[in-house]
Design a protein around this nucleic acid. Sequence first.
DNA 1: CATGAATGAGAATTCATTCAT
DNA 2: AATGAATGAATTCTCATTCAT
Lengths: 203, 203, 203, 203
Amino acid sequence: MQTLKYSVQKDLLTAARAIFLRKGFQKTSMRDIAQASGICLSNIYNYFKSKDALFCAIVRPVVDALERMLDEHHGRAGADILEMRSEDYFRNVVREYVDLLTKHNTLLKLLFFRSQGSSLENYKETFADRSTQLVKQYFRTMKERHPEVNIEISGFYIHLHTVWMFALLEEIVRQRLKPKDIEPIITEYMTGEIFGWRKLMKI
Amino acid sequence: MQTLKYSVQKDLLTAARAIFLRKGFQKTSMRDIAQASGICLSNIYNYFKSKDALFCAIVRPVVDALERMLDEHHGRAGADILEMRSEDYFRNVVREYVDLLTKHNTLLKLLFFRSQGSSLENYKETFADRSTQLVKQYFRTMKERHPEVNIEISGFYIHLHTVWMFALLEEIVRQRLKPKDIEPIITEYMTGEIFGWRKLMKI
Amino acid sequence: MQTLKYSVQKDLLTAARAIFLRKGFQKTSMRDIAQASGICLSNIYNYFKSKDALFCAIVRPVVDALERMLDEHHGRAGADILEMRSEDYFRNVVREYVDLLTKHNTLLKLLFFRSQGSSLENYKETFADRSTQLVKQYFRTMKERHPEVNIEISGFYIHLHTVWMFALLEEIVRQRLKPKDIEPIITEYMTGEIFGWRKLMKI
Amino acid sequence: MQTLKYSVQKDLLTAARAIFLRKGFQKTSMRDIAQASGICLSNIYNYFKSKDALFCAIVRPVVDALERMLDEHHGRAGADILEMRSEDYFRNVVREYVDLLTKHNTLLKLLFFRSQGSSLENYKETFADRSTQLVKQYFRTMKERHPEVNIEISGFYIHLHTVWMFALLEEIVRQRLKPKDIEPIITEYMTGEIFGWRKLMKI
DNA sequence: CATGAATGAGAATTCATTCAT
DNA sequence: AATGAATGAATTCTCATTCAT
């Protein structure tokens, strides 16, 4: 198999993205997509094996980006917790989020609010859960290295802050903020967050 | 049509609520509800004119409660803004939220996370939008009364905090917190919020 | 649920049977059946939950009859092997087969030759296999009771004769023989068969 | 179009045969065949004009062999009926069947049990019918030459024995008997058959 | 010869809702 | 009020085949 005709694939993805965005995964029918993209209904299946696969393909870049962030922040490769206090760390985190929002504005919306009925319908919840677990694990590891750090923080608190982060992303996406407006918001939010966490952990 | 049998209506609502909660509005079929409630499929239509109407009826109490809160806090009947500084106001607000969560735990979940496909699928967003508008209007009114109050607060900020409030409610619902655990969380959250708002508004 | 409207169910079964018989399970579409029976396509699903279920319902009587025969002939309730020599046994067996053919002529054809694609597509093979196993087991049991009986008979032979039996049934069905013509054929066949088996087993 | 590449054709036939054998004609899709053979889907149509034509081409050798046998045994070129009594005739017939089974094991299975949906789906029945007609005709011809021969044999009997023959072939194919095991079975079967026929015909 | 792309018909099944009694 | 029956539109997906290059 060679690569399929590029322009058709592109038309398809573009049209599908627009409809998914407007109507959500479940209420969008393959007919809708066929009609909107001008591609024969059955031909869609030459490009994607199912409606779900099509949705996942559209949304993939942002899923990949989120997975990478999850891994880098709280995974094994994570930095030392005391870095939280450094300027560099702070700027990095901000840039990451700004990048995410700038590049994947629409896809975030799709993934978080239009995915019901697809295999990604629980992605947000799952992500928050996994994030919470990873943070807990990360804390335990850090505790060994820095016994003075307080890690008596409830799962509820951790989870809530992940969810709030998402809510912030969502708001930015919803309001279609321009890149230059995004950065100060993220900066301000992160300042508060990091400050809060450091206070809790006494570092 | 006259007086519909009360017990049937109750069975219906109870059964439907349970299924909507488990499968969501869209994936729940009228057949599912008929089967679970033991009420004949076509008889359901003697009680509710559509699937959507049934869902709305179930969820109505919490919608009413939210509307009332919206009205009381930011509507014309709202209190003076300087009340924000009083202990009473604070305690009232906390109690209101605790009440809401205690009484309508399940319905909140339904309304916020199981309503896709129904006419209430955008309730959360709509609520936040209306809330934002009301708050802005309220600020303008208060400005006339108290010119010293700063009301230069972005719509984004207002909207975001409404959404965060919802995210908090959602977390509490999700984690099935018990009433006694809810109060301290709300109290803590409200303390931070009111403090933040007062700082911004310089009151 | 009360019993569904009898006449519709009957029409449905009758029409479906006729089409299945003509075109086979796989090539028959639910549309075909709807059209032929004059019943709305989706209404069929109020009577049978799937195409397969419809087919099985049609064919059920003959499946039941065959299962009963299998059980009675070779199952635990089976008679002593030496009964093979009695007149009564012989007449019974003949009558059974004549009955089967007389009552279930059409259904046998459906089950054996029109079931491809349904869950019963391998019924004939499965039946022959199970029959072979049961016969082998039966022989072993009888060997204990009558050590003089020879049971050194290959699985191939047993299986082949089951299959031949089916082929005979099939021929009778195919040719639409009348009841009175069936009996002599079965009688003759059985005479040969029982004679052959007795010779092999030396009883 | 000219000379189609031999090796491609061969790959195609080999792959298709394997899949038809496993899944049957109807459940095998041209896509399956394309994938398994490594030949581009649309290119298959340069070699065979339809799925059916492909199936027929695969199965052709065994169809030819069967046609030849039909012709030689009962057709105009057939030997005198009294030859039935000779050793040579007997050995010839046995060898023929053993050859058929040895050479065309797989194709027989395809033709008899995997052809539903193709134009050959009724080959077995058709063959048996034609065979029956030919035998009847042959009998009439022989009657003229040998008036003492009894030809009062029912069509049912003739047809049945053809079908049994097929059932035997089927069993041998099904059980994957090895060539050396096939011969004794055929020999034994033929002994009985010829003996039976001669007795009936009084020759 | 080979290939990727396209096509239109058709498959089973589900659903909210209405009808007649 | 209650019920069984009916309906028509919709849904995802599959398939053999053809087209254009």
